[in-house]
């Protein structure tokens, strides 16, 4: 499965992923009137990102404690108004430092 097989997998993955992105855009043509649907779509990205972050961050960090610490430190950093990149770096550094200590 070395060469050709790998490329078939790659093409399949790229195709399916982009088709999912395109599908709703070709179906929904105008402004959604329904108040429920508009509210629902407003909340979707926040829920998705929250659900993806926790508890996955605890597995990614190597130890649950380091992951939890990174989450809390990241929330505080973002709450004080820091941007995407500084918050990311702060999370990485806190995991690294906790890894050294424990």
């Amino acid at each position: 499965m070395r060469d050709n097989g790998i490329w078939i997998y790659i093409v399949l993955m790229a195709l399916v992923t982009n088709l999912i992105r395109i599908l709703p855009v070709t179906v929904i043509r105008k402004k959604i009137r329904s108040r429920f649907l508009r509210s629902f779509l407003y909340y979707v990205p926040y829920v998705t990102l929250a659900v993806m972050t926790f508890p996955a961050i605890m597995d990614a960090a190597g130890s649950p404690l380091a992951g939890l610490a990174a989450l809390l430190v990241g929330i505080v950093a973002a709450w004080t108004g820091l941007g995407l990149f500084p918050v990311s770096i702060i999370c990485c550094v806190s995991v690294f430092v906790l890894g050294l200590v424990s």
């Binding site: 990102l49 993806m52 990614a60 999370c91 990485c92």
Partner: peptide
Amino acid sequence: SALSVALYGMFIAIV
């Protein structure tokens, strides 16, 4: 493992 937390840091900063 420190680097792999970067993505989640970004999610937190968006939310």
